[in-house]
Design a protein around this nucleic acid. Sequence first.
RNA 1: GGUCUCGUGGCCGAGCGGCUAGGCACCGGUCUGCAAAACCGUCUACUCCGGUUCGAAUCCGGACGAGACCUCCA
Length: 488
Amino acid sequence: MSTHQGNLVVYNSLSGQKEKFEPIHTNHVGMYVCGPTLYSEPHMGNMRTFINFDMIYRYLLVLGYKVKYVRNITDAGHITNSLGEAVDSIGNAARLEQMQSLEIVYKYNVKFQELQRIYNLLPPSIEPTATGHIQEQIEHIEKIIENGFAYVVNGSVYFDVKKYSEKYEYGILSGRKVDELAEETRVLNAQDEKRFFADFALWKKANPEDMQIWRSPWGDGNPGWHIECTAMSTKYLGSHFDIHGGGMDLKFPHHEDEIAQNCGSLGCNPAKYWLHANMLNVNGQKMSKSLGNYFLPKEIVDGTTELFDKPYSPNVIRFFMMQAQYRSNLDFTSDALNAAEKGFTRMSDAVLLISKLKTSATSSFNVDELIASFYEAMNDDFNTSILVANLFEAVKRINLINDGNDTITTQDLAKLETEMLRFIYDVLGLQILTENSNEKLAPVMDLVIDLRQQARENKDWTTSDKIRDGLAAAGITIKDGKEGTSWG
RNA sequence: GGUCUCGUGGCCGAGCGGCUAGGCACCGGUCUGCAAAACCGUCUACUCCGGUUCGAAUCCGGACGAGACCUCCA
């Protein structure tokens, strides 16, 4: 258990303020994060949200909390589009690819698992699926009807926002007022089954062409978009848990409706703290399919997106993201990524240096203070930007010690190493590659470097430069250092 | 149109009343056969106009600009 546990402050979207983090049950944290809808491969923007909540999960673990982290998988695609019409996004994708819904879901789930591995995401405690919890969703809907906050029309069930507003505040999270919403929204169509424009579907009667159909007390159909999260969060975390997270764009209507459903069935807001991660921008605008500034997490790693002229390692991407706070916008540009790549290399080099440092009788700077600054940064609403800055402060110290301009005791060095690795590996989720592990090339390179060294000792600069340039042409960079020559 | 965020040095990105992060680039230096790399140092910015204050990038008002949400979206 960490002594830093009591000092965490988080920004709660519900209050619009930073609040002291106090779990409902001491030392235990329940966290629910809205996961992907598996009708396509998650894009980089999706990944930013998952990476940010992975970082939050990691830090809570480092603080010593016992965390139950639930992230759902939406594999039932019945949702409504902007016209209020039912759209089966997974079914549509399936038809397009001439597959069945479950094949589509399976296919993209495999891809998603691969991305989690590539980007070093810790697996959640559980990843429940919507289709695995149809019964729970139906029971939830029944309870909402019982409580008088929903009505049945032609085999579909709708949430009654007007009725709900008499007892609860619809719009509490997003700051919307039902009356204001009314003014700006289109008139209901004649064929619309909803009584009020803001009402939303809890259960939708099946269309003959739907690939996924379930039985319910109201006939065959599909669950609405929001009810799965309510059903699953309740099942695994209870009616009221600590953290509910997701992307900023889910605030309304998704999370707003989750709150309404939870209040409507169980009488309380599902979560104590609502955390929202900000969007990812590419060249100044939110990444989206329609704007063409869209790329996949795999493409940027493989270098196959035309938006960037070179590939970047997942660690560099993660590091780049961690340089911004999760609530800020982050703009992906080549310049910014290149800068992050160099910065990450510098940090990595320093980390590899730690174990080789010479210790002294005294430390010339306050190591405890430096370490405390790591926790202070993270305790302030997971401010990874400040954390990275403070880690670079440590990087500078490590280099100064290496150059003999600073000193550190054995004890302090051990502490510094432990804490730096904790924050870089365990909190930020970065991986630093230790050695060049190309088994066949390594002895060859040792030989080549040895030959070049001989040439240099003989002042045969023509030969030594020829070797250097030849290797460079082959994509191998030679670095001459004090301790010898390295390559990569 | 409504609601809300935000405008920080060449680029990214913190800070949220005084101590003016950090990374990258630039420049200077150390090292080096030369170079690269590495390391050290330097560089002092807050869109504009008013106001509050002893003091504002930070608070208030206004202008201009950008972005997000307003039933697809992480």
